[in-house]
Write a protein that binds this DNA or RNA. Structure first.
Lengths: 220, 220
DNA sequence: TACACAAGTTAGACAAGTCTAACAAATATT
DNA sequence: AATATTTGTTAGACTTGTCTAACTTGTGTA
């Protein structure tokens, strides 16, 4: 049985491993920063996780989830995303409100609850932010996506996920009438600052920043 | 902000106060037993709760929730019973499975979540065990109920709640085809051992023990 | 290659919640 | 009323997760 805190460390490591699929190892400071604790605290916890064979690492080395650790972490992520979907779909929470509550709900221990919840939601594949929801067996649905910043002028694409899930960004998207599924055409890419001009069907063209384009995943 | 543990102590005190409405004070040992901790542990926590003005008590005296403590405890009970209802109604959990998971869910912190959940469930007044669900303002719906053991021969009554919520009892009820709303007639009360003979509409008469009769609430 | 800085660890402390063992107060019994 | 029993408290210890401050290791650059 894992403690609430141990679960958070595992999930953090899994999330960090997604940030750079080719280099899935994390550093102590990186992990501490992600969780909002001091590096010393992270080191202590690392020893414990290593003891339980949930991570592999040696002093001053990189941290990697073991197969077991990855399984546990994936199960937590599954719960997190299912709860987010529940809050969004059934309880009318908005895009930017679901995360905080799901952070708590993800720690509820009940196999049955998760699976019943998934069934109740009709086996969703993606959460409200477009992120894939791991299946009960640990499989993670694949999705064909690229950052908007990689799209070239003239292409038409559809929003499939957000990279940045901060409230400010999500609220900005809402204001722009952009949500998962929105289609638009990239009219122009400005080399100078990386900004681009996009046109949502039947709307006026609109200019968005490079930062914006690096926060949104689309399907070409 | 209350810790998970503090919340449990408050809820325990509220539950104990219900056990004997005229004498709502609790003792240290009683409280410790309810929570499954040692009396020494309960004493320590009591000091903390007193410090926070959630209970009134003095050394070697009885424990009583303050107005504030009662409010907090009621809010937790509200969450507990709403979650139980959710699990039972929406996720097909059985009568005897809901409690354990609700014990965890009741600690989730989100005003919005509770209220949205209540709305989603269509403002239920009673949980799957027939217990009243406190309203957002703290009001607790009243219910007209007596223990089955107080009913005399010849009376017809309807099951409105269970006093004992243990899995064994609930499963036994299920086997007997008795649930909230079931109507039956009390045919005979045996003075010798307090057992009684009941007849559910269109079923054969059946004998139940005194213990059984003291575990079920009915409306005459 | 040597040094400086970044990254990571250790030691010692603290708060929360728990325990056991010993003690004190209150209540019940004869 | 004296004593026995129950009830409750205190003291001291342990665990978990956190911190700060000081130290060690690794690495990039001049």
């Amino acid at each position: 049985m894992l403690s609430y805190t141990e679960e958070n460390y595992l999930k953090a490591l899994l999330m960090l491993s997604f940030q750079n699929e080719e280099r899935p190892e994390a550093g102590t400071n990186e992990m501490a920063a992600y969780l909002g604790v001091k590096p010393a605290t992270a080191t202590d916890m690392l020893k414990k996780l290593k003891e339980k064979e949930l991570v592999t690492y040696q002093k001053y080395g990189k941290i990697l989830l073991t197969e077991l650790g990855r399984e546990k972490a994936t199960a937590i992520l599954r719960k997190h995303r299912l709860w987010e979907t529940f809050l969004y779909e059934k309880l009318d929470f908005s895009w930017d409100e679901v995360h905080e509550v799901a952070e708590q709900l993800e720690h509820i221990q009940s196999e049955k609850l998760v699976n019943k919840l998934e069934e109740f939601l009709d086996f969703p594949e993606f959460d409200p932010h477009g992120d894939p929801i791991p299946k009960a067996n640990g499989d993670i649905p694949a999705i064909d996506k690229v950052l908007l910043s990689e799209v070239t002028a003239g292409e038409v694409c559809k929003v499939v996920a957000v990279k940045d899930t901060s409230a400010v960004f999500l609220q900005y998207l809402e204001k722009l009438n952009i949500t998962i599924g929105t289609k638009f055409k990239v009219l122009e890419v400005i080399d100078f600052d990386g900004s681009l001009s996009i046109q949502i069907e039947k709307e006026e063209p609109r200019s968005v920043s490079m930062k914006f384009a690096e926060s949104l995943f689309v399907k070409r």
